[in-house]
């Protein structure tokens, strides 16, 4: 009897470690970056949101630029529903001024942070623009991937980010947690 209890305890410990390891991989630790005006923002500022949409974007990437209107619309449609949007520019060659002008020209009304040393891109292992991470208030990644399945808006058949947000807001699990699409490589410092 004691031996079987011991085995059970070992099994439970192994299971707990595996569960913890699996979860920790999908959780993001807090970070702070400055926006294009030099104002510091932390991920923890958005803790009270129902979901946090972290979007790796670019000023010079044609794919990311094809999504400017869709990103602005998403922000407009979901901000009032308690979803926060944070853009991150991790491209070394795109200056804070360029990011600011680009945001203004394209009516990107959400906060855009400049990730000078790719700290956040490395933390989330982001590699492409546009690339989306949707987090819950505990900073767990609920969705990772594309905005939708076509750069051409009239060819879109799957609005993946909208679907994920609708499911989260409805308290349902996200049906498709991971998607992929072509995009521009994030131009890292090294």
């Amino acid at each position: 009897m004691p031996r079987s209890v011991g085995k059970l305890a070992v099994l439970m410990m192994v299971f707990s470690v595996l569960l913890w390891a699996g979860e920790s991989q999908k959780k993001v630790s807090d970070f702070s970056l400055e926006d294009y005006n030099g104002v510091k923002h932390s991920l923890s500022d958005y803790k009270s949101s129902k979901a946090i949409v972290v979007m790796f974007i670019a000023t010079q990437c044609p794919v990311s630029n094809n999504y400017n209107t869709r990103m602005a619309d998403l922000h407009k449609d979901y901000a009032s529903k308690g979803v926060s949007f944070v853009g991150i520019n991790s491209n070394k060659q795109e200056s804070a001024d360029e990011v600011k002008n680009h945001a203004k020209e394209n009516n990107l009304g959400f906060t855009i942070l400049k990730d000078w040393n790719n700290v956040v891109a490395d933390k989330l292992q982001a590699s492409v623009t546009p690339e989306i991470f949707v987090l819950n208030p505990a900073f767990e990644i609920l969705y990772h991937g594309r905005i939708d399945d076509s750069q051409r808006e009239n060819k879109v058949t799957s609005k993946d980010l909208r679907s994920a947000l609708d499911q989260i807001l409805a308290g349902k699990p996200v049906a498709v947690e991971e998607t992929k699409a072509f995009g521009c490589t994030i131009k890292r410092v090294k």
């Binding site: 590699s127 492409v128 992929k180 699409a181 072509f182 995009g183 490589t185 994030i186």
Partner: peptide, 14 residues
């Protein structure tokens, strides 16, 4: 196509 090239590939080009 992306997964056909490599399952670990995000789609970033080239």
């Amino acid at each position: 196509f992306i997964n056909g090239i490599d399952r670990s590939w995000s789609g970033a080009l080239p």
